[in-house]
C-alpha cells in the first residue's frame, strides 16, 4: 500500500479540524441568534397544580382568552384539555409583542401556530409561555401536535391575527373572537 502512515494521520487530523469547524459555525449561529434576536426556547419553569387548575387563578374558564393589561402587555391564556382548547379561538394584534400562556389540567399536549415559529409543549404541572410578534394577519391554525389520547386528531384552535387598528379591547381589556 503506497500511502504512508504519516499522510493518513495528517489527513485525518485535517478532516477532524474541518469537522470541529463545522460544529463551531453552528454554535456561533446559535449564540448570535440568542444575543442579537433574543431567541430562546420556550422554557418557563413555572409550576402549577394541574388538578386544581380550574378552581382559581388565571386559568379559570372565564378568565381565558386575550387580555390587555394596564401597562399595555397583550397576553392570551389558553387551556389545552382532552380534547379541546378553551377558548377555541383567540384574537391577537399583528406587529405587536404578545405573550401566549398555556396550561393543561390533564395530559401532555402541545401546540404550533401554522406559518409562524410559535411552538411549545404543554405539560401538566407547568405553564408554557411563548413570546412572539405575529406579522401576517388572518386566521392561523393552532392544532394540538402532541398525542393526548384518542381525540387528539380533532383537537384544534384558531389564532386570529388582526391589524393593530382592528384590535379593540373592551373596558376590562379583553378581546374575544365572537365579539367582533
Amino acid at each position: 500500500m503506497p500511502i504512508s502512515e504519516e499522510i493518513i494521520v495528517r489527513s485525518e487530523l485535517r478532516w477532524a479540524a474541518i469537522s470541529v469547524g463545522v460544529v463551531s459555525v453552528i454554535m456561533i449561529a446559535l449564540i448570535y441568534a440568542g444575543l442579537v434576536h433574543h431567541i430562546n426556547p420556550p422554557s418557563n419553569i413555572e409550576r402549577i397544580d394541574p388538578k386544581t387548575l380550574h378552581l382559581g387563578g388565571e386559568f379559570t374558564e372565564a378568565n381565558l382568552g386575550t387580555r390587555v393589561s394596564g401597562d399595555g402587555q397583550v397576553t392570551s391564556r389558553i387551556v389545552a384539555t382532552q380534547f379541546t382548547f378553551q377558548p377555541r379561538c383567540v384574537v391577537l394584534p399583528a406587529n405587536r409583542r404578545v405573550t401566549l400562556r398555556f396550561a393543561t389540567p390533564d395530559v401532555i399536549h402541545g401546540i404550533l401556530v401554522s406559518g409562524t415559529n410559535v411552538n411549545t409543549m404543554i405539560v401538566p404541572g407547568y405553564v408554557s409561555q411563548v413570546h412572539t410578534v405575529f406579522t401576517r394577519t388572518g386566521d392561523l391554525l393552532m392544532p394540538c401536535h402532541e398525542y393526548c389520547g384518542l381525540g387528539h386528531s380533532e383537537m384544534s384552535a384558531t389564532v386570529r391575527v388582526v391589524p393593530p387598528d382592528e384590535f379593540k379591547p373592551d373596558a376590562e381589556g379583553r378581546v374575544a373572537c365572537d365579539a367582533r
Binding site: I26, A33, I39, G110, N119
Partner: peptide, 10 residues
C-alpha cells in the same frame, strides 16, 4: 438549533 426547532418541532 432551537430557533429553527420551533419551526419544525412535532
Amino acid at each position: 438549533s432551537y430557533g429553527m426547532n420551533a419551526m419544525v418541532h412535532n
